[in-house]
Amino acid sequence: MVKSILLVGVGGQGTILASKLLTAGLMEAGYDVKMSEIHGMSQRGGSVSTHVRYGEKVESPVIELGGADILVSFEMMEALRWLRYLRKDGKVVVNNFKINSMPILCGLADYPTGILEELSEKTTTIVVDAAQEAVKIGNAKVMNVILLGTIVKLMGLEGINWDKIIRDNVKPKFIDVNLKAIKVGMDLV
């Protein structure tokens, strides 16, 4: 059975590191893994997505519409933008964190209200405040690894040696805070 995880956010939020750690862990656990992301102009503050698929044998690196088991959104509005990729009975983890896009910054639009309500009404929604949790453990930037922790828990991947994965893939001075972050994330859901 192939599982599909969709990570979405805004360019610069660290979705790439989170998915790198995730795929390294899945590979170490013996799964076939494929991951897909689109680089390019989107890194200039645009909407970004990373598709991760794993199982015994994975063909498509892309999650199809209605195909993701979980959707993990690093930014609030992005969760809605990508919702059509979620399975009808899938779960959303949404970070309660807003980043204004250019039309909002220029005053052409307002940041929409009622997003969390809309999500909760439509599907199983877990709201986390990864930004606040990250600050609590001393580094605002580890929001991404906290969110990775939520994936680990929800997908039942606690058996993988995440400590080793983090030690192998993160710069030495950030190892400790990231070790804390993944545990915080696992405890949030």
Binding site: V10, M41, Q43, G46, S47, M77, L80, R81, P103
Partner: peptide, 9 residues
């Protein structure tokens, strides 16, 4: 209506 575009900038 609850989603605003997010073009690269």
């Amino acid at each position: 209506n609850k989603v605003v575009s997010r073009p690269p900038t």
